[in-house]
């Protein structure tokens, strides 16, 4: 159970790290990509940047949902067995 909890935590952590450092590496090494215009007066970097803010929040939502629905139940069961 503890293993599963760490798997979920680590999976989500890596997801966040990949998204964020993907963005940082783009800034560091391929600025042109983020500066590419879409439409007339927007660059691709803007929706990506704001998208990351929203995705970060959604990930915390996913974890909360999982922990409340799955993990807490298992913890309660285990506690009952121990007592």
């Amino acid at each position: 159970m503890v293993k599963q909890k760490w798997q979920v935590s680590l999976l989500l952590t890596f997801l966040m790290l990949i998204i964020y450092f993907g963005f940082i590496l783009l800034i560091a090494f391929d600025k042109e990509f983020l500066a590419r215009p879409i439409g007339k007066d927007l660059t691709i970097g803007l929706p990506i940047g704001i998208g990351i803010l929203i995705v970060a929040w959604l990930l915390t939502g996913v974890y909360t949902w999982w922990a409340n629905r799955v993990y807490d139940k298992q913890v309660d069961e285990l506690k009952r067995k121990m007592l």
Partner: peptide, 13 residues
């Protein structure tokens, strides 16, 4: 963005 992405990590870890 940098200020925000730390929060999911606080939660997960």
């Amino acid at each position: 963005i940098g200020f925000l992405v730390g929060w999911p990590l606080i939660m997960f870890l």
